Computed example of a mutant assay.
Amino acid sequence: MAALPDGPARDALRQRVVRAWMPMAERLALQFRNRGETVEDLRQVAMLGLVKAVHRYDPGRGTAFESFAVPTVVGEIKRHFRDHMWDVHVPRRVQELRNRVRAAHQELTRTADGRGPGVEELAAHTGMSEDEVRAGLEALGSFSTLSLDSALPGADDGYALGDTLGAAEPGFQLVVDRESLKPELRALPPREREILYLRFFCDMTQSRIAERLGISQMHVSRLISRTCDRLYERVMGRVA
């Protein structure tokens, strides 16, 4: 195939080679089943790796096609898991740390009567630093995430993960608003400050305020509206 020029004959031969090696690619794909990806998708990724291997193979290097194709197909499958199967985006370096920590954890657990190894043991076994081991351990939970509706371990009353999430406290913003207004309220003329106090703190109607101050209700309404607009502009201007 390498001796043929580009054209229909070379394309037809390339397709024959791909079809001939498809069983090999399928066997490699099945080695990665039960890891969260469907078998059909694994087959498709493996076939893509096979096509790449056929395109890139150079017999002039003296390497048998199988020796070149197997790592190419396996690499394509692993790349698929790395790029498409993580629920949380994790840098490639951390993904590799996770794989090393995971393999070491399994090995040490088998030889320690089921006891989970600690960070120091994992670091000594892998030759990694303790910080790298911790990063790999944190990444272990990033491959697949839990639903917020998932029940917490030991919770018999349906208490779910989402029930543990906090919410914004509305009272905090009220405190911020009041503290922002205090200096502006102190700077108001006495009559406007008294009108706001009677309306918003004593809950008096505009008509009762008008009677108390000896002015019209319309005048009270205009003063409240104008004063509130001025306070808003001053506070927001200071924040900006």
Results as ranks from 00 to 15, higher is better:
His89Trp: 06
Val88Trp: 06
Thr63Val: 06
Gly141Ala: 07
Glu130Asp: 03
Arg234Leu: 05
Met1Arg: 07
Thr145Ala: 08
Gln106Val: 14
Ala46Arg: 04
Asp163His: 12
Gly49Leu: 02
Leu148Tyr: 08
Ser142Tyr: 11
His84Leu: 04
Arg199Asp: 10
Pro117Ser: 07
Glu66Pro: 09
Asn99Leu: 14
Met128Ser: 02
Gln44Asn: 05
Pro8Thr: 08
Ser180Phe: 15
Leu30Asp: 12
Glu233Asn: 02
Arg92Pro: 11
Leu42Cys: 00
Leu137His: 00
Trp86Leu: 06
Arg193Pro: 09
Ser144Pro: 08
Gln15Glu: 03
Arg82Pro: 10
Ser129Ala: 14
Ile195Cys: 04
Asp58Leu: 00
Pro71Tyr: 10
Tyr57Asp: 00
Asp83Lys: 13
Gly237Val: 04
Leu146Ser: 14
Pro23Gly: 09
Gly75Tyr: 04
Arg208Ser: 11
Gln173Ala: 12
Ile215Met: 05
Asn99His: 13
Gly158Glu: 10
Ala240Leu: 07
His89Val: 09
Asp87His: 15
Thr109Val: 09
Gln95Glu: 09
Phe65Thr: 08
Thr111Cys: 10
Ser221Cys: 12
Phe32Glu: 00
Glu37Met: 01
Glu184Thr: 07
Gly49Asn: 05
Ser142Phe: 11
Met128Val: 06
Pro71Asp: 02
Asp149Thr: 14
Met218Asp: 15
Ser221Ala: 13
Leu148Met: 10
Val74Leu: 13
Pro153Arg: 07
His105Leu: 10
Glu66Val: 15
Ser142Cys: 13
Ser144Ile: 13
Asp229His: 12
Leu198Cys: 07
Met47Arg: 14
Asp163Ser: 06
Thr205Arg: 15
Trp21Cys: 05
Leu223His: 08
Met204Arg: 15
Ile224Gln: 00
Asp157Gln: 11
Val239Leu: 11
Gln217Gly: 13
Val73Ser: 09
His89Ile: 06
Ala12Gly: 00
Glu130Ser: 05
His219Tyr: 14
Ser129His: 11
Leu42Gly: 00
Thr126Ile: 01
Pro190Ala: 10
Glu120Leu: 14
Arg35Ala: 00
Arg226Met: 15
Lys52Tyr: 01
Ala29Glu: 01
Pro117Gly: 03
Trp86Val: 03
Phe201Cys: 11
Gly114Thr: 11
Ser147Ala: 12
Ser221Trp: 08
Glu211Val: 03
Met22Lys: 06
Ser129Asp: 11
Leu146Pro: 03
Ser180Val: 10
Arg186Tyr: 14
Trp21Tyr: 10
Phe32Ile: 04
Val73His: 09
Val54Phe: 02
Leu97Ala: 04
